[in-house]
Design a protein around this nucleic acid. Structure first.
Lengths: 238, 238
DNA sequence: AGAGCCAATATTGCATGCAATTAATCCCGA
DNA sequence: TCGGGATTAATTGCATGCAATATTGGCTCT
């Protein structure tokens, strides 16, 4: 089982569409989150420039964006290095996500439109289908979508933005726990309760269910990651 | 009363220190948050380049950073425009800040060191002194510092980062309510309770106090901003 | 006069070159 | 053989020029 491949989108060598800056930003971001660029390593501009067949200008613009996203660190006159995530860093982010979902849950229960709830419910069904078919990748993506859609249903643009950003940072680690069959089954069950609470618009319950869901998910994920860490002898990092 | 001058640091025309990119980023950010660059207006690269006496390269890097911060919006082949904040946008951010402080408060009550609590308590005393001296500017800065320090005391780097970012986005609007003398007095009183709750490490109480503090603060701020909006005939925006 | 189209102008996106800074290499002495 | 310092190489930061795109102004036609 390759952890690395779980959430990485297929890295097709597509031609740059839109601005080169946007293209290279997305491309380098993928290279980091997929582990292609090793955490802690320096990023050589020239190598990347040749590899992506663009000039240094858009690459350096991408660096500035990715630094702001917290994926790389730029030291003036030295260069960019891939940020190393420790287990505690991920846990800290999870804690933030829980806090964001807490407020999102209550607001979503109040403000969600029936259409939004129906869409989430529909996503849930498709996620269950993916689970039953054993399609981990599909499950992950729908899962992520459900959580974001619940947040979006709170109708708070700032919340949606911050949540999405923080989510993206730790995407790879979040669902590692579901590799455990028992945990995965349990997660699906929890999601059923989450959907029901949303349909009944029970804010406090929804909030608590989401909190417990994340705590349980992260506990399992952390265990799995620590096992992998022990096996590979490397620190967990994106 | 110039709203614009409240939080704007003295815009000294200092020489660029560090990289030009960092200098120009900070400079343009100040120009936006101070209102020098009008919300909704297009930003002309050439004008800014001449004004700041740098080339387009570092300016364009700054644009990418500021876009990521949500201060400007870049349309490819068209240019950068200053993002317009509506009242609801600010309110949404406040809601996020409340959510972040909620989780921060409980963790801070658990994890804060005695030194951190002492530092916050000290800041509080200095803030009260600024209040009694009627120094609004000083009060604002210390106030902001206190809130950030409480968050920092949660010992969650992700939380500290996200909080600081969101705080910066709406800095100008947050304390507008304190221009009302009565509200200002009340805010100081609330801060006293906040400090006491932290010293006694009463997490849930601290959390609720902070929530109420922000709600009351924003209610007053919103009222003040809407009055200003009516007076100037312009939408509230940074 | 007003709408639509075309040319002229302005502005952006990107590549490249040069200077400044840092990292790597080599040489020398202990 | 190992450490320290100077020289060389590599890398970064920035300015600038050119091509591509969007905007503006003017013109024609209805």
């Amino acid at each position: 089982m390759q952890f690395r491949d779980m959430t990485a989108d297929t890295p097709t060598l597509e031609a740059p569409r839109g601005t080169r800056s946007a293209f290279v930003t997305e491309r380098v971001r993928d290279m980091i989150t997929s582990g292609q660029l090793e955490p802690g390593s320096r990023i050589n501009e020239r190598v990347l420039v040749e590899q992506l067949n663009i000039s240094r200008t858009p690459l350096r613009e991408a660096f500035k964006i990715l630094e702001r996203e917290g994926l790389i660190s730029i030291r003036p006159n030295v260069g960019a290095t891939v940020v190393v995530f420790t287990m505690d860093d991920v846990e800290a982010s999870i804690e933030v996500l829980i806090g964001l979902e807490s407020i999102g849950a209550e607001r979503a229960a109040e403000r969600a439109t029936e259409a939004e709830i129906a869409e989430i419910s529909d996503l849930h069904d498709r996620m269950v289908a993916a689970f039953e078919a054993g399609e981990l990748m599909t499950y992950f993506h729908i899962n992520q979508d459900i959580h974001q859609k619940i947040i979006d249903a709170a109708h708070n643009p700032a919340l949606s933005r911050v949540y999405a950003e923080e989510c993206a940072r730790i995407r790879r680690f979040r669902f590692a726990g579901n590799r455990d069959e028992a945990r995965w089954t349990r997660a699906v069950h929890e999601h059923e309760q989450i959907r029901d609470a949303l349909i009944r618009r029970e804010g406090p319950l929804l909030r608590e269910l989401l909190r417990a869901h994340h705590v349980a998910g992260w506990t399992a994920a952390r265990r799995a990651l620590e096992a992998e860490e022990a096996a590979t002898g490397r620190a967990v990092a994106q």
